[in-house]
Amino acid sequence: MGMLPVTDRVSERAKNLMTQLLECCKGDDGSFNGCFLFFDEDCGIISQKKIIPATLQVCTNYILCQIERDMERFKRLWEDDKNPCFVFEAYSLCREHDFSIPGWVL
């Protein structure tokens, strides 16, 4: 599928994620000690494979990878059993993030 575009809605989700991470990284005294994500660079699966400083770009990539994995999973499930709920889920995900609708969904 390739990397999805960064839409306004994806940017908003990334900003919200970054805000939440920054809140979690504050010490009891309000100081900030740095914020890091543990994730597999392949596609945003949370693991202990790599520690990456949390930045807005990292949060954006993380969200895009999650969405892309969901779309690939929905496509695979649709191909396996032709259950239309997977097509509807993929369509909904595209509409939610302002992505174009893939041909297999149409």
Rank of each mutant, 00 (worst) to 15 (best):
G2P: 02
G2M: 05
M3D: 14
L4D: 07
T7P: 07
T7Q: 08
D8G: 12
R9W: 03
R9S: 08
R9N: 11
R13L: 02
A14H: 05
K15S: 02
N16C: 00
Q20I: 04
Q20D: 12
L22W: 02
E23S: 12
E23V: 07
C24L: 14
C25L: 00
D28P: 09
G30P: 07
G30L: 08
G30A: 05
S31C: 03
F32H: 14
F32S: 04
N33L: 02
N33M: 05
N33S: 13
G34I: 10
F36D: 10
L37A: 06
L37S: 01
F38Y: 14
D40I: 03
D40V: 04
D42Q: 13
G44D: 02
I46Y: 04
I46M: 05
S47R: 10
S47P: 03
Q48A: 03
I52P: 04
A54M: 06
A54Y: 06
L56V: 09
I63R: 03
L64E: 06
L64C: 05
L64F: 04
C65G: 15
Q66S: 12
I67V: 14
D70V: 01
D70P: 00
M71E: 08
M71Y: 09
E72R: 15
F74D: 12
K75Q: 15
R76Q: 10
L77A: 10
D80E: 14
P84I: 10
V87R: 15
E89K: 15
A90E: 06
S92C: 08
L93K: 13
L93Y: 03
R95H: 10
F99K: 10
F99L: 04
I101C: 03
P102A: 05
